[in-house]
Amino acid sequence: MSMSAGKARGSAAAAPITALDGELTIVPSGGTLGAEVRGVDLSAPLEEPIVSRLRAAWLEHLLLLFRGQKLSDEQLVGLARHFGEPHIVTFFDYNRAGLLPEIEVISNIVAEGRAAGGGGAGELVWHTDMAMFEYPASATVLFGEEIPPAGGNTRFSNMYAAYEILSQPLKNRVEGRRALFDKGGGKLGYSVNSTENPCAVHPVVRTHPETGRKALFLGRRDSGLIQGLRAEEASLLREQLWEHATKPEFVWEHQWRAGDVLIWDNRCLSHSRGAFASNARRVLRRVTAKGEKPV
């Protein structure tokens, strides 16, 4: 069964398993990326054979979808630790009362005059999580707690495929190039503590440390100054790369349901989010795992 356009339906017959019983099932989306994992209760302890199979599927399919999950913050952080050491980020400014330091909230809700999370309700530009750090995210683990009735879909682009099909002249232009990535702030729908300004320089084409495959690494669509080029030339090249990388053949879109968990590989994917009604409630909880320095 296809998961194309993010509309896969989970199997009601698939009983949750722990590391002690049963068999998980991995169903590829049929698209350029993504697979649904059935038969796993992520709130239960995961033993090494299960973790190894999930990591192998993650590397193969770039993104894993789990439906119908119920996770506490502690369980969400524990799940993310199977993919790396969680980031602890302090520069996003919203009400963090009661949150674990590893947890970020993606939400449009405002309570008592203060945002309960970041991201708002508008369109969020194409980006890669934590690209502004020397060690960007390897994995993002995102748990859908409250989902609006329409809109707010998350789109993903396969940056392996985008690089591999890139024209040779463009490959020649980006070979060896590096870009400066910063935090983006309000451009990603967040209020930001202006006393902190993380930024990093990374290659425009990176080699995945586990698969050895090359992928475009562009940071955020409206940023990422390319070094060694004049401003206009850099802007034109960046736009050419994004126009190519977000062609339909490279993109898969997820339509959220409450209880969904997505785990994706930021080293070879970029993502964006569609807008939704500002009076609808949307709450997702996120942990990003710190990855390697891109090369």
Rank of each mutant, 00 (worst) to 15 (best):
A277H: 02
V27L: 14
E196A: 09
V40Q: 10
E164H: 07
G212Y: 01
A14Y: 05
G152A: 04
I88W: 10
D182E: 14
F66N: 01
E60A: 12
R96F: 05
V192G: 11
S52L: 13
G224R: 01
P169Q: 06
E23S: 12
D21T: 12
S138V: 01
R220S: 13
E243T: 04
I147C: 07
R281Y: 04
T288M: 13
L33V: 15
G113A: 09
S157A: 15
G98Q: 08
V204S: 05
A44N: 09
R220M: 14
H208N: 07
A13L: 13
G119I: 00
L65C: 08
R178D: 05
T25C: 05
L124N: 06
A234Y: 01
S272Y: 09
F250H: 14
K187G: 10
A161P: 02
F276V: 03
E85I: 00
M1C: 08
R9I: 11
S29Q: 13
L262T: 12
G39T: 11
D73C: 00
M130Y: 09
S194I: 03
I50N: 07
R286I: 00
A280I: 00
F91W: 08
G219F: 02
L33Q: 05
S235E: 15
Q75M: 04
K7F: 06
P149I: 08
G185H: 04
I109R: 07
Y160C: 06
I17M: 11
C268A: 10
P209N: 05
S11E: 13
G119V: 02
G151F: 02
G212H: 02
A275K: 06
R221W: 04
A13P: 00
L42A: 08
L99A: 03
V40W: 02
L62E: 14
H61A: 14
L218F: 08
I103W: 00
G212K: 01
V205Q: 02
G151W: 04
S191F: 05
A231G: 09
H61V: 11
T246S: 09
E74D: 10
G151Q: 11
L33E: 12
V261E: 02
R281F: 01
L59W: 11
P209L: 08
A200Q: 10
A161E: 11
G228E: 15
S72V: 06
R285E: 02
K171P: 00
V283I: 13
L284N: 08
R221Y: 07
G184P: 06
I50M: 15
R238V: 04
G98F: 07
R267S: 01
R173C: 03
N279P: 00
K183R: 13
L59A: 15
P149V: 04
P209V: 11
H87L: 02
D222A: 05
G84C: 09
L99T: 03
E232K: 07
F156I: 01
V105Q: 00
A275E: 11
T195M: 04
R114A: 15
L65Y: 10
G68K: 11
R230V: 06
R173V: 02
L237W: 05
Y135V: 00
P86C: 03
V51K: 01
V287L: 13
L236F: 02
R267Y: 10
R53A: 14
E60K: 04
S272R: 03
V205K: 03
E104K: 06
A289C: 13
E232M: 08
K70E: 13
S43D: 07
S11F: 08
R173I: 00
E292A: 06
G10Y: 14
G6E: 08
L269C: 06
V261A: 09
